[in-house]
Lab assay of single mutants.
Amino acid sequence: MGFKLLSKLLVYLTASIMAIASPLAFSVDSSGEYPTVSEIPVGEVRLYQIADGVWSHIATQSFDGAVYPSNGLIVRDGDELLLIDTAWGAKNTAALLAEIEKQIGLPVTRAVSTHFHDDRVGGVDVLRAAGVATYASPSTRRLAEVEGNEIPTHSLEGLSSSGDAVRFGPVELFYPGAAHSTDNLIVYVPSASVLYGGCAIYELSRTSAGNVADADLAEWPTSIERIQQHYPEAQFVIPGHGLPGGLDLLKHTTNVVKAHTNRSVVE
């Protein structure tokens, strides 16, 4: 069995187990497998329904001669939608809004960016022009300005110390501490036991640490421990890039980060 097929099978099995364990909360999309990078042309966006009122959005972007996937989250909030992270750029984010209108038909009224990198804030200006209120932590807003990236308009308070959590509509926002970046936030959907790890969490097929220019490698494993301790009931975990899975993604990420750190020390 090929690795790609095995990865998709694991996603399907995880979703099936969740649907059985929580039949009222989960209505997993039966329309197909989780979209992969090879299936999404740059400039297009796919939506994948995880649970009743919960979707991931998947886009792709060219970077350094390669094409990478990027995940975000959409959560229903009454007759409105909360968006977590842009679709990595203005063109993708405009396509995301169009796809949401086509498939869901509810307005996106608020959006949260989970850290300051372009795959999370690139497209904020498109959201703002569409009347979406954009939010991020003060740290993310400051770092985005320093980096020359787009800056969300509103500040999220109460997320300055490791372990801080605040309720934001249908989700809980959690600051686990520094990891992929010093400002990275985690998003949890309690009604569906869905954990969105953003770039602080890796997919299972990833074996290298990737972009760690703004990471705190020493603190990252401790931050992941905080996530595990705060959300032990999480059933569906979405990484910032690639295929979702279960809580095993947290341990896998820790292993990859520690291996990278150990290699760096040896070198």
Rank of each mutant, 00 (worst) to 15 (best):
D164G: 09
K4Q: 07
P152S: 05
I17T: 12
H241S: 03
G122E: 08
G240E: 05
G177T: 00
S264L: 09
F174T: 01
I238G: 02
G242F: 06
Y48L: 15
V28E: 09
G2T: 07
S137M: 15
L247H: 13
T109L: 10
L83P: 00
S264M: 11
Y135P: 00
I186L: 07
E33V: 09
N255M: 12
V266L: 14
L204V: 11
G148A: 08
S193T: 10
L204N: 10
V212W: 03
S181C: 02
T207F: 09
V171K: 01
V11W: 07
L73Q: 02
T222G: 13
K258I: 09
L6F: 09
I238K: 01
F174N: 03
S16I: 13
L47D: 04
S205R: 08
K8F: 10
P138I: 08
D216K: 07
T86P: 00
L143R: 11
A179F: 04
H115A: 00
I100V: 11
G72F: 05
P190I: 06
A179D: 05
D52H: 09
V126Y: 10
P170C: 04
P107M: 09
N211H: 03
L195D: 00
Y68A: 08
P232E: 07
G197E: 01
L195E: 00
Y48D: 08
S27I: 09
R110D: 03
I104C: 00
M18Y: 15
P23Q: 13
R46M: 14
G72A: 03
L127T: 01
T140L: 04
H115L: 02
R263A: 14
V37N: 14
S160I: 11
G210K: 05
K4H: 06
I40S: 08
L47A: 04
A66L: 15
R141E: 03
S27N: 09
P35R: 08
I17E: 08
R110L: 08
H241Q: 01
A98P: 06
L143D: 02
L159N: 01
G198K: 00
V212D: 07
R167I: 14
I104Q: 00
L185S: 05
G210E: 05
R263T: 14
A15S: 14
G122N: 14
R141I: 10
Y34A: 09
S160R: 12
G163W: 04
Q103P: 07
E145C: 08
V112M: 07
Q49D: 12
L204G: 14
S160C: 06
E101G: 12
A15R: 09
S27D: 10
C199H: 00
G246T: 13
D216F: 04
E172D: 08
D52P: 11
L127Y: 02
V42F: 07
G65L: 07
A95K: 12
F26D: 14
E147C: 08
R128M: 13
T93K: 01
G105R: 10
D64R: 12
P232S: 10
D77W: 09
I224Q: 02
V54Q: 04
V265M: 11
I40K: 06
E145Q: 13
H260V: 12
H57C: 04
L247Y: 15
S264E: 11
P41C: 05
D64S: 15
T207S: 12
A213K: 14
V108D: 01
A130M: 13
Q235P: 06
P35F: 09
I186S: 04
S223V: 09
Y202R: 05
Q61H: 07
H241K: 02
H117N: 00
L83Y: 00
A178E: 07
H230L: 10
L6I: 09
Y196D: 02
F63Q: 05
S113I: 04
V126P: 03
R142L: 14
Q228C: 07
A179P: 00
L96I: 05
E219M: 10
F116I: 04
S31W: 10
S208R: 09
F168L: 09
V112D: 07
D125F: 05
E80T: 10
E172Q: 07
A144W: 04
G122I: 04
N184H: 03
N184R: 01
I238T: 05
A15G: 08
S22G: 12
V37F: 15
L106S: 10
L143T: 04
L127D: 04
Q229T: 12
L217I: 13
T254P: 06
A51H: 08
G246D: 12
S56H: 08
L5K: 15
V166K: 10
G245Y: 03
I84S: 01
L156R: 04
L47N: 04
R141A: 08
P232T: 09
T86G: 00
I20F: 07
L6G: 11
L243R: 15
P35M: 09
D183F: 01
L82H: 01
G197V: 04
L82E: 02
A178M: 08
N71E: 01
V124Y: 02
I50G: 03
L96R: 00
E150Q: 07
H241D: 04
P138S: 08
A95S: 13
I186F: 06
A51Q: 07
L10W: 07
Q235S: 11
L24Y: 14
G197P: 06
T134C: 04
A94S: 14
G123T: 05
L204P: 06
L5Q: 15
V28R: 08
A129L: 11
L82P: 04
I17F: 10
V237A: 04
Q229S: 13
N92V: 00
I84D: 00
E157P: 10
G53Y: 07
A144K: 04
D29I: 09
I17S: 13
A218P: 09
S27H: 12
S160E: 13
F174Q: 02
Y12P: 06
V212A: 07
D119E: 03
G2S: 13
A95H: 15
S264W: 08
I50P: 05
I227R: 02
L81Y: 01
W220I: 04
T86Y: 04
A259T: 10
W220T: 00
A111V: 06
G122W: 07
E99L: 14
L24F: 14
R46S: 09
P170R: 05
P239W: 01
A66Y: 15
S223R: 02
D119W: 00
I227D: 02
E147Q: 14
F116H: 04
A94V: 13
G53C: 06
L156S: 03
V212T: 09
I104Y: 00
N92M: 00
Y12C: 11
T60G: 11
S27K: 10
N262F: 10
V132E: 03
S161N: 12
G246L: 05
I74G: 03
L83H: 00
T36N: 14
A98H: 15
D64L: 14
L243A: 15
T182F: 15
V126E: 07
S161T: 13
E44M: 11
G53N: 11
A59K: 05
G158A: 08
P69Y: 14
S38K: 07
T60F: 11
V112Q: 04
R128W: 07
T222I: 11
L97V: 00
L195S: 00
A144T: 10
V28K: 08
G2Y: 15
E44Q: 12
S205F: 10
Q229L: 13
N149W: 06
A259D: 13
W220E: 01
N262G: 12
I17G: 14
I186Y: 00
E172W: 01
S16R: 11
L195Q: 01
A15V: 08
S191M: 11
I238M: 08
Y12L: 09
T207W: 08
H260Q: 11
I50Y: 03
F174M: 13
D125V: 06
Y68I: 08
G148V: 05
I20D: 14
L217H: 01
L83V: 09
I238F: 05
H117P: 00
G105P: 07
L249H: 05
V212E: 04
E145Y: 14
F3Q: 06
V237Q: 01
G43H: 10
R142Y: 13
N255Y: 10
L96E: 00
T109R: 14
V28H: 10
V189H: 05
P244N: 05
V67E: 15
F3G: 10
Y175C: 03
D119I: 01
T253P: 03
S7C: 14
S160H: 11
S191F: 14
L9T: 14
H115I: 00
M1A: 05
Q235E: 11
Y175I: 00
T93L: 00
V54F: 03
G158V: 05
I20G: 14
N92Q: 06
G177Q: 03
A215M: 03
S208P: 07
S193W: 10
A179H: 02
I238A: 02
S62V: 05
L106P: 06
V146K: 14
V67Y: 15
V146G: 13
L143C: 05
G158N: 14
P176T: 01
Y202I: 15
G197N: 04
G122L: 06
D164S: 13
